Amino acid sequence: TGEEYIAVGDFTAQQVGDLTFKKGEILLAIEKKPDGWWIAKDAKGNEGLVPRTYLEPYS
């Protein structure tokens, strides 16, 4: 299990392996990579890379 984050903006996948999401979606951070791209999972179970700058902790 990971930590929940809320998307603060829309993001469209730029390449294969990225995860597209919309502002307000809750994402589960699976792995926090030091380069600023995290592996996350959305509510539908889709998994991919997301930019850290689009996420804020969800409580």
Rank of each mutant, 00 (worst) to 15 (best):
T1Q: 13
T1R: 14
T1E: 13
G2S: 11
G2P: 13
G2L: 14
G2V: 13
G2C: 14
G2E: 10
E3W: 13
E3T: 10
E4W: 15
Y5D: 00
Y5G: 00
I6F: 06
A7K: 01
A7L: 03
A7Y: 02
A7I: 02
V8I: 15
V8Y: 04
G9F: 15
D10Q: 04
D10N: 10
D10Y: 05
F11L: 04
F11K: 03
F11E: 00
T12P: 05
T12L: 10
T12W: 11
A13W: 04
Q14V: 12
Q15C: 15
Q15T: 11
V16L: 11
V16T: 11
V16S: 11
V16I: 12
V16F: 11
V16C: 12
G17W: 06
L19S: 01
L19E: 00
T20A: 10
T20C: 07
T20W: 04
F21L: 05
F21Y: 02
F21A: 02
F21S: 00
K22H: 09
K22A: 08
K23G: 04
K23P: 02
K23R: 11
G24T: 02
E25V: 06
E25M: 09
E25L: 03
I26Y: 05
I26G: 02
L28N: 07
L28T: 12
L28I: 15
L28P: 00
L28S: 07
A29T: 08
I30G: 02
I30K: 06
I30V: 10
I30Q: 04
I30D: 01
E31R: 11
K32R: 09
K32T: 06
K32D: 03
K32P: 05
K33R: 15
K33Y: 11
P34Q: 11
P34F: 10
P34T: 11
P34E: 12
D35E: 07
W37C: 08
W38S: 00
W38V: 06
I39G: 02
A40Q: 00
K41V: 10
K41E: 04
K41R: 15
K41L: 09
D42L: 03
D42K: 02
D42Y: 01
A43P: 08
A43W: 10
K44R: 13
G45P: 00
G45V: 00
G45A: 03
G45M: 04
G45Y: 02
N46G: 07
N46T: 08
N46M: 08
E47G: 05
G48W: 03
L49H: 09
L49R: 15
V50A: 08
V50F: 01
V50P: 02
V50E: 01
V50Q: 01
P51M: 09
P51T: 03
R52P: 12
R52M: 15
R52W: 13
T53N: 13
T53P: 07
T53L: 11
Y54T: 05
Y54S: 08
Y54G: 04
L55C: 04
L55N: 01
L55W: 01
E56L: 12
E56F: 09
P57L: 11
P57D: 05
P57Q: 08
P57M: 07
Y58D: 03
Y58M: 09
S59N: 14
